[in-house]
């Protein structure tokens, strides 16, 4: 895996952990361990997404940078598959 693939893989893994915890918290809203885990991974995901958006392309519209051009529109779509190398 190259750097871009590795970073996206990490984002997928951390976000998935958060999703599974979130569903658990939906029915166990006061579970301290789940709450702490969620807060911990939430912070990590934020950092990873910011890093990915700076280096490659924005993963959300909110992270789109408007300096040279509409990077959000130029980002590859998720169903293209493989690791689409991007030069914005």
């Amino acid at each position: 895996m190259n750097g871009q693939e590795q970073l996206l893989n990490n984002i997928n893994i951390v976000d998935f952990t958060m999703v599974d915890l979130a569903l658990f918290l939906d029915t166990h809203p006061k579970d301290r361990r789940a709450l702490d885990y969620y807060a911990h991974y939430s912070q990590i995901k934020r950092q990873l997404c910011r890093e990915f958006s700076k280096k490659y392309y924005p993963l959300t519209m909110a992270e789109a940078d408007c300096e040279k051009s509409w990077s959000w529109g130029e980002a590859p779509l998720p169903w293209e598959g493989g690791c689409v190398h991007v030069e914005l």
């Binding site: 893989n9 893994i13 951390v14 998935f16 599974d20």
Partner: peptide, 21 residues
């Protein structure tokens, strides 16, 4: 009723499986 017990140590393994529990 599920109680919060173990979570996989390796998150990548949990991801491939489809649950952290």
């Amino acid at each position: 009723w599920q109680k919060f017990d173990k979570v996989y140590d390796e998150l990548e393994k949990a991801f491939r499986i489809g649950t952290i529990f």
